[in-house]
Design a protein around this nucleic acid. Structure first.
Length: 887
RNA sequence: GGAACAUUAGCUCAGUUGGUUUAGAGCAUUACUUUGACAGAGUAGGGGUCACUGGUUCGAGCCCAGUAUGUUCCA
């Protein structure tokens, strides 16, 4: 069969993915095998595939495909997240482009548009995962707003409310004035911003209750947000601050609006920052709010939900907060309250979703009391019931869990799970599964006949649904105890980004224990963040994010998978360079060419070769490669179990490129125009197949293609082939491995010597050797001669004149050639080597002449040093003889 | 401001309880090799005071302290 010059990835990808789907290889149903379950971190339904997804899903696919081939019942569950804020923002944007304002729509009308949008664009990302080769069980595709899933979310809300874990409260929250919604702490991104620090003078009030003139008595505060003085409730100073301690208990006046506020003492105030006096604005600053509560201060909320100033501000009503800031500075300057303005760099919170400055704001929201459910989740990770990879994230997790804060779960959005609370006109409410139940409950609770109720307008935080993901994808809550959840749950490995350890991972663990009494997964593998070569995060704004699908079309999914995996050290971020794709492509080309070679051999295969046709008499190369294969497979298993995927791939890459292609295939290669012995060919094909098995999880398409080209009528597809686990368990033959190392070093050293002496490849040499152990050479001298074009290999006890002399390991070699030998390069080579060993010997002897070393070091260490010394001495002696032999 | 992690070749990283030859790999680079799988190849070489300063030890890339730089998380 004719093999194309290169691997045609376009047709292979299409052919094999379609074939795998047709054969239902990715579909899983419970059986008596051990399950291996992975749930996909559901991408946003609005999302498109980017490099982060590529890394994350390639890793999952490797784990899942490997498990499938190792006899497990592998199940990888796909799905998407409704992503309330992100999706709603996109729908609002789309409506705006069509000239429709969200405010002009009813909730139902808006949701109709949103669902339309979801049906049209949602799930594009899932199609893209197929291009990457992901072996997901598509029958199990879930969505966080599927009807059953939706009901489960509402059920959990009801349940936690009934248990007293959910409450409604007026608290300081992060407010996104553009999206007009509350944000959880985790959704706020702090950025360094160059701002100004304004020093403002407040008038003091004298003993008579009358404000003193500014020039006579005042107190100066420093603030970066001068517009918020309109909401001031106090001025605080450190009670130990001698400058101000006498003022505690007196009053000051808020400039421009002349409101009287107390001066209080609180240790929170830093004496060395600003002026040492701090204005307290409980409605608009988290810390001020705490102080306000402590001191029983008034709360003056000066902002509307869109970030404009409210009536309570008295001034600049309706003006945006940033415009008001400019204006108040001018007015304060005119009134003589501004002492100075300094440049000041500080951290400002921005909304993760809309990127506007977040406003700390008091508002009535729904909360989960996290301390009530976090206990088992903390100890599960502490005690190793759930393992994090890399383990360093354990610290981070512990710290967060031990200082856990209540979770604000309400969002002022329509797209999502509507909060199941119903209110009457007076604001009395009940929590229920649905309206009917709500009416009934309300009647019972408040003794009202046929109450008129209205459901809470708000939605739940997206993460309030995705924390149920690992069991609700198996309907663990909507259909408890069903066959699937019993079999697949807990899942095995979660692969995700460290950025969402608190958003998602921690909460899944909590929900897992709360609702199933079990952990949701055993291992969590945190991937690195994909960055560009300059170490910057990939983002749309920077335009440094490559188009993944374009890349797959250009170079193939296998090359892209290889590229990202080889660049991805376990636990570190990866600086991704497009060049690593090319390394993947070259690797594919290498394997493809190995196939072409074997195909060539097949055409020349022959049984029962005549004595003249035989180029290889021994089976030693097969014995060696089998031992080497065992060794590497064992190594790979260890690496995979430690989630060192990148290292495992590197190990395999070396095995294939160097050991298989460069050594093994060369060793068994028949002579020029000679036939290939069928038994050697069959061995080679079998080894090639085993290499493909190991490589398949990393590069599924090219391996499946080659696997079928190697032999006609393969009994199974590689995708579902079962790897023979006993192969590794049998262990490898160490002596054959040692022989191979000796052979390799002899081949390289002699080839090198030939090149340096200017002996042409075509010219045969005669090789003489003085060796310690002749038996070792028995099995490898045939190959050595073949690889270095030697017509004879003879043992000798004496130096041979007019030869190139070299030392390999502990043996001496003499190369005799018809050609006139130029020994100058050889001479330099040997001299350099002698110098190296002399230096080495010196360092060893220095150690040995140190009495304290000999006395204190462990005896085996001292013995080792003695052996090093002896080896070096012998080596030097041999090299010196060789040098002398060169004449 | 607090904390965690990191700093080893031009780049990306290994380096397992301190001793296994004077620190390894891949990529990149340089020179050489063009006869049958592969120039998208082969062979060989160059390239490192293991961030810095001290300390512990017979012995430190590895342990300890401090400094610097970077990344991340928290405030």
């Amino acid at each position: 069969m004719e093999i194309s010059k290169n691997f045609d990835f376009i047709s292979a990808e299409q052919k094999w993915y379609g074939h795998w789907l047709d054969k239902k290889y990715f579909e899983s149903t419970p059986d008596d095998r051990e399950p291996y379950t992975v749930v996909i971190p559901p991408p946003n339904v609005t999302g498109i595939l980017h490099m982060g997804h590529c890394l994350n899903n390639t890793i999952q696919d490797i784990l899942v495909r490997r498990a499938r081939m190792m006899g497990k019942n592998a199940c990888w569950v796909p799905g998407t997240d409704h992503a309330s804020i992100a999706t709603e923002a996109k729908v609002v944007h789309m409506l705006r482009e069509r000239g429709i304002a969200k405010s002009s729509l009813s909730r139902d009308e808006f949701l109709t548009y949103a669902w339309e949008w979801k049906e049209k664009y949602g799930g594009i990302i899932l199609q893209q995962l197929k291009k990457l080769g992901c072996s997901l069980d598509w029958n199990r595709t879930s969505f966080t707003m599927d009807p059953d899933y939706y009901r489960s979310v509402i059920h959990v809300f009801n349940d936690l409310y009934t248990k007293g874990y959910i409450y409604r409260g007026k608290r300081m929250i992060n407010w996104d004035p553009r999206a007009k919604t509350a944000l959880s702490d985790e959704e706020v991104i702090f950025k360094e911003v160059q701002g100004k620090l304004y020093f403002l003078q407040y008038q003091l009030i004298g003993a008579d209750g009358v404000a003193l003139p500014l020039e006579k008595a005042s107190i100066t505060i420093a603030t970066v947000r001068p517009e918020t003085i309109l909401g001031d409730a106090a001025i605080a100073v450190n009670p130990a601050d001698e400058r101000y301690m006498h003022l505690i208990g007196t009053f000051a006046v808020v400039p421009l609006i002349n409101r009287k506020i107390p001066i209080i003492g609180d240790e929170y105030v830093a004496t060395d920052f600003g002026s040492g006096a701090l204005k307290i604005t409980p409605a608009h600053d988290m810390n001020d709010n705490q102080i306000g509560i402590k001191h029983g201060l008034d709360v003056v909320d000066i902002l509307n939900e869109d970030g404009s100033l409210s009536a309570d501000a008295q001034l600049y009503v309706g003006l945006d907060r940033f415009d008001a800031r400019k204006k108040i500075v001018v007015d304060l300057q005119e009134a003589g309250h501004v002492v100075k303005i300094e440049e000041y760099t500080h951290q400002v919170g921005f909304s993760e979703r809309t990127d506007v400055v977040v406003e700390p704001r008091l508002s009535l929201q729904w909360w989960v009391d996290m301390k009530k459910i976090s206990g088992p989740a903390l100890s599960a990770v502490e005690e190793g019931e759930i393992n994090f990879h890399p383990a360093k994230f354990k610290n981070l997790y512990r710290h967060w869990m031990e200082n856990i804060k209540d979770w604000c779960i309400s969002r002022q959005l329509w797209w999502g799970h509507q909060i199941p609370a119903w209110y009457d006109a007076e604001g009395r409410f009940v929590v229920a599964m649905n309206e009917k139940e709500a009416k009934q409950k309300f009647s019972e609770t408040f003794k009202v006949e046929n109450p008129q109720l209205k459901q809470d307008e708000d939605c739940l935080d997206t993460w309030f649904s995705s924390w149920l993901w690992p069991f609700e994808v198996f309907k663990g809550l909507s259909n408890p105890g069903n066959k699937d959840v019993a079999y697949y749950y807990p899942s095995n490995t979660l692969v995700t980004a460290p950025e969402i350890i608190f958003f998602w991972v921690a909460r899944m663990i909590m929900a897992g224990y709360e609702y199933t009494g079990k952990k949701p997964f055993s291992d969590v593998y945190f991937t690195g963040i994909v960055r560009d070569t300059q170490g910057r995060k990939m983002s749309k704004q920077l335009g440094n994010s490559p188009d993944l699908l374009e890349m797959i079309d250009e170079i193939g999914a296998d090359a892209v998978r290889f590229g990202i995996m080889i660049a991805s050290p376990a636990g570190n971020d990866l600086l991704w360079d497009k060049a690593s794709n090319e390394q993947g492509r070259n690797f594919i080309n290498k394997i493809w060419n190995a196939l072409k070679l074997i195909q060539l051999w097949k055409e020349r295969a022959k049984d029962n070769l005549s004595a003249e046709e035989i180029t290889l008499t021994s089976d030693w190369p097969h014995e060696w490669f089998e031992a080497r294969l065992r060794q590497v497979c064992t190594e790979m298993d260890v690496q995979m179990n430690q989630f060192k995927l990148s290292e495992s791939l590197k190990t395999l890459y070396t095995l294939i490129w160097d050991d298989f292609c460069s050594w093994y295939l060369e060793w068994i290669k028949p002579g020029f125009e000679k036939p290939m012995d069928v038994k050697h060919l069959d061995k080679a094909i079998s080894f090639f197949e085993m290499l493909l098995e190991r490589l398949h999880p990393f590069m599924p398409f090219v391996t499946e293609e080659i696997y079928h080209l190697l032999r006609n009528n393969q009994p199974v597809d590689l995708c579902v082939k079962q790897i023979d686990g006993s192969f590794v368990a049998r262990g490898e033959d160490q002596s054959v491995l040692n022989e191979a190392e000796l052979l390799k070093s002899a081949i390289t050293a002699i080839r090198d010597a030939r090149v340096k002496a200017g002996i042409k490849n075509k010219e045969a040499i005669t090789l003489y050797a003085t060796v310690k152990d002749k038996t070792v050479w028995a099995s490898i001298k045939e190959l050595l001669c073949k690889q270095i074009n030697a017509e004879a290999f003879m043992f000798t006890e004496e130096s041979i004149a007019d030869t190139i002399q070299l030392v390999i390991g502990g043996d001496r070699f003499f190369i005799k050639s018809e050609q006139a030998i130029d020994t100058s390069a050889q001479r330099i080579e040997i001299e350099t080597e002698i110098n190296y060993y002399k230096g080495f010997l010196e360092s060893v002897e220095k150690k040995l002449s140190n009495e304290r070393f000999v006395q204190n070091a462990k005896p085996e260490v001292v013995d080792l040093e003695r052996k090093k010394q002896a080896d070096a001495l012998e080596k030097i002696k041999m090299l010196a003889e060789s040098l002398k032999g060169l004449g």
